[in-house]
Amino acid sequence: MTHNREPGAQGEHRMEDKVKQGRMKWIMVVFALGAIMTLGACKKKVAPPPPPPPPPPAAPTASLTANPNTVQKGQATTLTWETTNASDVNIDGIGAVKPSGSEEVTPSDSTTYHLTAKGPGGTQEATARVTVTTPPPPPPPKPSATEEELFARNVKDIYFDYDKYDIRADQSGPIQADAQFLNQHSNVSFTLEGHCDERGSTEYNLALGDNRANAVKNALVQAGVNASRIRTISYGKEKPFCTESNEPCWQQNRRGHFVYQR
């Protein structure tokens, strides 16, 4: 209503305005009374509202870890847990524990640790799995090692000096060890290969390699190994182990080489 007033007519119409304002107050009071009456009538129809609820208690949280989570039998692992809002914390197998903490455990078998955290806000659970492995049994007399593997592990090649086929003093130990093994495994047959370094001539080296193979054979026979178990062959310089032209390589090639015979 006042909104429609024109600014130029303010003085001339003052009285008329006051009358209008008095009338407006009445209308507004009537409206207000009506409104109050209406409101009062509504409230009387529903139940009275409850008192505001107290803030609900927070739900508990819980975590549980095991470090490491895989141990060998007999080894310890550390359980670490954290809870909140819990008044009663329990781990199966350990019992009541502090709300947060850690403890060393040594399970004898794989175990799932179970934590229960109870509080006014409820109950929370957490688990941690610890896997317990069984250590490999200490090598018992291994039935799986074949004769061939034992042969390869125990029988050592015999090395020679340049252009020589007699057993060198420092090779008598290895040859005795070889003979001892071969006497303990008397069903094993084998080939002795004679090898030479690259420097000599082809034909002479094949003959020399034959002498080397037979020198090792004879030493083994003297140490009690039956000659019928031993086959000899010479490769001369035809099948070298090492192909460089230097003394370490040549020494590798001057040898009596054992080969298990199936």
Binding site: E203, L206, A207, G209, D210, N211, N214, K217, N218, S234
Partner: peptide, 25 residues
């Protein structure tokens, strides 16, 4: 044994060679 290096006689009737059939070439 190890048998190596054959050699013909000039008449072609014989061969010489090296053999370690007795354990020594």
């Amino acid at each position: 044994g190890t048998n190596l290096s054959p050699a013909w006689t000039p008449d072609g009737l014989h061969l010489a060679f090296s053999s370690s059939r007795t354990g020594d070439p």
